[in-house]
Design a protein around this nucleic acid. Sequence first.
DNA 1: AAGATTGTTGCTTA
DNA 2: TTAAGCAACAATCT
Length: 294
Amino acid sequence: MPELPEVETIINDLKRVILNKKIANIVIKKPKLIKNTLGTFRSNLLKSRIKDIRRLGKLIIIKIDSKKYPYLLIHLKMTGQLIYCSKNSVVAGGHSEQGDGKKTFRDICKPGKYTHIILKFGDGSVLHYNDLRQFGLLKLVSAKDLPDAIKNYGKDALDSKYSLSWFIDSLKKRKTSIKQLLLDQKILAGIGNIYADEILFRAGVRPFRKVNVLKKAEIEKIYKQIKPILKQAIKYRGTTFSDFVDSKGKKGNFSKLLNVYGRNNEQCLKCKKAKIIKIKLGGRGTHYCPNCQK
DNA sequence: AAGATTGTTGCTTA
DNA sequence: TTAAGCAACAATCT
């Protein structure tokens, strides 16, 4: 379940190792993950160089030096992983075969059961796209089609160019619950199920409260939690709940800082009085402390 | 063994 | 016209 901090961790790591590398070979084992025709995907990606890596919310945008299709979009959805491997790599695991640092390059970088796409670079290093549940996607888009491809994403949750008054305004028009609003990528892109629960815990607001009845002070509290919690999670290299690993196959460390997610029935770490309750909201598992959150 | 899990899309309903 | 609600997608675990 990579959310914004996990995707940020991946792209920051990848930037250090694949910028300016040339894609020398492409292996496609699961064609349905590619949202172009295979010929288009293959011929335009092959021999291209990686020029930049960025993201919008949870969507990875890789700029390549192809004239026709300069953007490679990758979405990891629930269980997608990008694992980079070179001769010097020590790969911790992920859905690839495990390496212990003593094996040969060939052993470590062996594709796993869930390795569906492989990009091989000119220097012999490889990037594996692994995906247990195969919900993810890879797509090449032209400069002209990029706006349409990202039209469902609002402001990135870490974008500096949105304000409290804008946030209050976007809540006013809605009738949904505050948690579902935080999960709506068209407003703020990047927050997923785990961080939505954690943001609302720290803000002291129950997830099912309707946005149109929240007090201004409560909205402000929520707003003020968003960036700090995401930034803190990036510092800890993300949260691993089940599948997330970084580009070296390592787990994230933010899991131990979770206050509510995955802690149902456990005593609240903050008030030490109430037990964390788990409910279903909008079809998603939702956790909160009935004492700390009002 | 049915139900839960999770991000997004696309469909239906209001 | 826009928003809300929900099934669908795949594989695994409980």
